[in-house]
């Protein structure tokens, strides 16, 4: 085991820095899809880290939930997002924030859901 320590350290450093780098990339990327993909990879790397930290249960959970299902969620959401931003009518960019728009009649009406 003693001999493995430097190796372990290299692994740890790579994993830790990789996590930070992937996290950074996922958040900084200009392309949302790329972000999500990077985030999923980030999740997988996290699972590795859990395993490295002797937490296999967490690793399993992370792999299944954190990376897998969250990724699915994110991708689905992105797809819906793209649907709507294409389908949505042109938005009046100059429209004042609704919180402070007293005259906006529509905003003051009760919204009773979609039914």
């Amino acid at each position: 085991m003693e001999a493995l320590i430097p190796l372990q350290w290299i692994f740890d450093a790579l994993l830790g820095l990789g996590l930070l780098w992937l996290g950074w990339q996922a958040l900084a990327s200009t392309d949302l899809f790329r972000s999500i993909v990077l985030f999923i990879s980030f999740g997988l790397l996290m699972a590795l880290a859990w395993a490295r930290l002797d937490a296999p249960d967490v690793a399993l959970a992370e792999a299944a939930v954190g990376a897998g299902l969250t990724g699915a969620l994110l991708l689905t959401a992105l797809a819906r997002l793209k649907d709507t931003s294409i389908a949505a009518p042109g938005i009046d960019a100059g429209h004042p924030p609704i919180d402070y728009a007293p005259d906006d009649d529509e905003s003051t009406r009760i919204k009773r859901g979609d039914d």
Binding site: L19, G23, A26, L27, L32, S35, I36, F39, F42, M46, A49, V58, G66, T70, L74, A77, L78, L81
Partner: peptide, 17 residues
């Protein structure tokens, strides 16, 4: 918002870590 949500997830991962 998607980035904000991702950011929150990353933060959460940090705390879990």
């Amino acid at each position: 918002l998607l980035r904000k949500i991702l950011a929150l997830n990353v933060m959460g991962c940090g705390v879990f870590l």
